[in-house]
Structures are given as C-alpha cells and as structure tokens.
C-alpha cells in the first residue's frame, strides 16, 4: 500500500493536519516538476499553491484504484504548468531553453541516471533503455521540460517531421515494452 494513501483518505475527510503532512512530504518533489516546465521559481511556486488548493478540493473524488497519490498529484501540477507556459504572456525566454538542452548531457545526476537508481522506476528505466538515444531524449525533454514539437525541432536542430516521428515511435515502443513487462 502506498504510504500516502492513508493521508489522502484523511484529507478526503477534511483533516487539515493530514493535508499539512501531505504537503510536507510531496511539495518539494512537485515544485521540482513545475520548475522544470515553467523555468521560473516564482511562477512555479504560484502553480504549486494553486495545485494544492485544487488537490484539497478534489481529494474527496480521488480514486486510489485508478492512480497512485503521487501520480494523481503530479498530473495536477504538470497540467497547470503546461497550461501556464503555453499562455502567450508567460512565454519563457529562449536563454532558459538553451540552458535546458545544453545541460541535458551533464545534468548531474541526469534524469535517466536518477531513474536507474530508483526502485519504483525499474520498468520505465529498462524500457527507455531499449529506445534509441534520440527517441529517449526527445520524450524526456518533452515530459520534463514541457517542450513542444516545434521547440524540440529548434533546439535539437532537426526537421519537425523527424521530431514527431522520434516521439511517436518512441512512445509506441515504450508502451509495448512496459505493457509486456507487467
């Protein structure tokens, strides 16, 4: 059983102390998710705040059979961050983006290394290992940094069609591999 399940159940009964504990345990990881996508701390903190208010109001409808607590909360934060970064007034500077791509290789330890060291990430890690380096990189950049096809094409200096193909084939292989592994 997920250690957060009990906290989620108490939160759905409007237990504010359980909610404070849920925040204490998960806000650091969720802020990291938002920061990768919006690339500004103040924006990321605003997204974190709005996400937790939304989590509090929606936790009575949370279904633990459908998804684990961390998956559910990460989805709320990522969707808010993606909506935020795609509004014209919130476009992040290209400098930030250059930084993301340049540091991809020596992001220490890189996202793929961290996956390797995480017990829960075994299947994803094994299956990402079966993709080509280009497929793996474009999927991870899109998921973690919220890059669109066009942004990926610009920054990986590849035609748009090539990027779309890498992602489509990469996702198909990833699904086949992970569904086969479980």
């Amino acid at each position: 059983m997920d250690p957060l399940d009990d906290l989620m159940a108490r939160c759905s009964l409007r237990d504010q102390r359980a909610f404070a504990e849920l925040y204490r345990r998960t806000s650091g990881r969720l802020l990291a998710v938002a920061m990768r996508i919006v690339r500004r701390r103040d924006w990321a903190e605003e997204i974190l705040q709005e996400s937790f208010v939304s989590i509090w109001h929606h936790v009575p409808q949370y279904d633990r059979v459908r998804s684990a607590p961390m998956t559910w909360m990460t989805t709320i934060v990522r969707n808010r961050a993606l909506d935020w970064v795609r509004r014209p007034q919130h476009e992040t500077s290209d400098e930030g983006l250059e930084h993301v791509v340049e540091n991809w290789a020596d992001d220490a330890p890189g996202p793929l290394d961290r996956l390797r060291n995480d017990a829960d990430a075994g299947a994803l890690n094994d299956c990402l290992g079966q993709l080509s380096g280009q497929q793996r990189q474009s999927i991870a950049l899109a998921y973690l940094h919220g890059l669109t096809h066009t942004e990926l094409a610009d920054h990986l200096q590849q035609p748009l069609g090539t990027i779309k193909t890498w992602i489509r084939r990469g996702l198909e292989r990833l699904r086949g591999c992970m569904d086969g592994a479980t």
Binding site: R29, R36, A68, T74, P111, L115, D118, A121, N125, L144
Partner: peptide, 11 residues
C-alpha cells in the same frame, strides 16, 4: 500517467 510519472518523481 503511470508509465511516465517516475521521470517526474525522481527529480
């Protein structure tokens, strides 16, 4: 969401 979430939670 479940397949990809370890990428986010290991940050």
């Amino acid at each position: 969401e479940q397949r990809l979430v370890p990428l986010a939670t290991t940050l």
